[in-house]
Amino acid sequence: MAASTLVAVGGKGSNPKTALYVGGLEETVNDATLHAAFLPFGEIKEVNIPLDHATGTHRGFGFVEYEEKEDAAAAIDNMHNAELFGRVLKVNYAQPMKIKGGDKGWSHLPVWADTDRYIEEMDAENELSAYDKEQQKLKAKEAAGKEGAEEPAAPAAAAAASEAS
């Protein structure tokens, strides 16, 4: 008998141990096909195959959420590395959605929540820009000073060379 799959991290859905990621889907697989393939392992709460907005087709993966965590574990045990429409599936627990802004993401924060950090970054960027401009002006003055110092020395060297001949 195969050992049951252990869960170490949370996942997508209302109960993280019931939501599965299914990767390696063939392009003709749809929600109904995926539902039918995973139905033998238990009561399915939801099936979702995200679509690519540009092409209107799915991106080769989907999510299946079970009512019971034991059913999800059985589906992983039986369907991981199984074949569906000639493609080998990768099935494991779904990871939580990670959008910028930490575990909850920006979608859970008000629009103004990141304003302070943005203002600090802009101030630092402006200070850096001002510092760079100041450094460029100093380098330009130094370069002009060196050119001015070399010019008088050049006629003196030319005069010394003409006296020697």
Rank of each mutant, 00 (worst) to 15 (best):
F63K: 04
T55K: 11
Y118G: 03
E46M: 13
I119P: 02
Q135A: 15
S4Q: 00
Y131E: 14
E125D: 13
G86C: 04
F63H: 04
K98F: 14
K141C: 05
P110F: 05
E68Y: 03
S165F: 06
P50N: 12
A143R: 10
A159Y: 12
A130V: 09
G11N: 10
G60D: 09
A3E: 07
V22D: 01
W106I: 12
V47N: 04
Q95Y: 09
K45H: 09
S165I: 07
P110D: 00
N78Y: 03
L25S: 01
D123L: 12
E67R: 00
D132H: 14
P155M: 14
K90V: 10
A94I: 03
D52E: 15
H80M: 02
K12I: 11
T115A: 09
L34Q: 01
E121W: 12
P152E: 10
A82D: 06
D71I: 08
L138K: 11
N126K: 15
A113T: 00
T18C: 15
Q136A: 12
R59N: 09
A159I: 12
D132M: 13
G42E: 01
L84N: 05
D77H: 08
G10N: 09
N15R: 10
P110R: 03
E163D: 04
E151V: 11
H80D: 09
V9L: 11
A72S: 08
A159P: 02
V7Y: 05
H108M: 12
Y66H: 00
G86P: 05
A2P: 00
G13K: 10
G24L: 14
V7H: 06
G148L: 15
W112L: 00
F61S: 02
A130W: 13
A74N: 08
L39C: 02
L89H: 01
